[in-house]
Amino acid sequence: MKKTVLLGALTVAGLAATAASAATLDDVRARGKLNCGVSTGLPGFSNPDANGNWQGFDVDFCRALAGAVFGDGSAVEFVPLTTQTRFTALSSGEIDVLARNTTWTYSRDTDLKLDFIGVNYYDGQGFMVPKSLGVSSAKDLDGATVCIQTGTTTELNLADFFRANNISYEPVPIETNAEAQQQYLAGACDVYTTDASGLAATRATFEAPADHVLLPEIISKEPLGPAVRHGDNEWADIARWTLNALISAEELGVTSANVAELAAAPTTNPEVNRLLGTEGELGAMMGLDAKWAVNAIAAGGNYGEIFERNIGENTPIGLARGLNAQWTEGGLIYSAPVR
């Protein structure tokens, strides 16, 4: 038995599980649930509702992944993580996939031993200032006091930007978005900087959103994407192609409403047929069911639906698709072909 001395004691209490064996898929299957790391609370991306159910853009990716693996979008355990604990949770095997709006960077991919499986949101760091300040460009911010959230790439970008433009600033590092927002609104800082999506989401909940403007400069590239442990290529493939399937589904017009109908019988579009498993044996190549993509889409809709429901223009967050539109619409969201 692969049970160490300590584990023996703990399994009596049913509190321990062995994990991090080479094949994540087997572990996930044995457990019957996907463990998905999300943020402890980020408007639009992951937050619990009054019933205690997690909701949001990142959360829906996890549900889709659970759909692909189990055919059941409810088979997910959400593990709330802070910026400090997220990478360790992944490398120790506490979670199977990290969907916690994490920026894909070189050192995280190599040194921290993560594998980013793609980008589900193209973001960039922006600035928000009160309109009354009369600032129209981030380069006018010489001497400004800037509120930032710590533990992210944000503070590095900020340091680089001000250094490159040879202007000075005073950083006010804040642990949570809520505190940063309170400080900014009380005028303790002139500028609030974080990912542009976060700024828009935050501004939308102000008492007077029109009194604040987002500056035109986006000072960094923040490709946010889910990550898995380094070294398990099979599992990385499953996560990667689940994301790709959601993106392709939007491109091909497959939605949660029509997916069951389209998957019932082969359609005239071979691309749709391959995606939905009515043609070929694509699922089996990853060790999944032929209907993996159908189940992933049925769990929460295609990429566009997930976007619109959680952070789209009709939500309080109110983000436009922008860079995150399909490539056919001038955006960057582009899936490798499913064939």
Partner: peptide, 8 residues
């Protein structure tokens, strides 16, 4: 309380 404030 942080998670609650993250809801819109």
């Amino acid at each position: 309380s942080n998670s609650i404030r993250a809801t819109s």
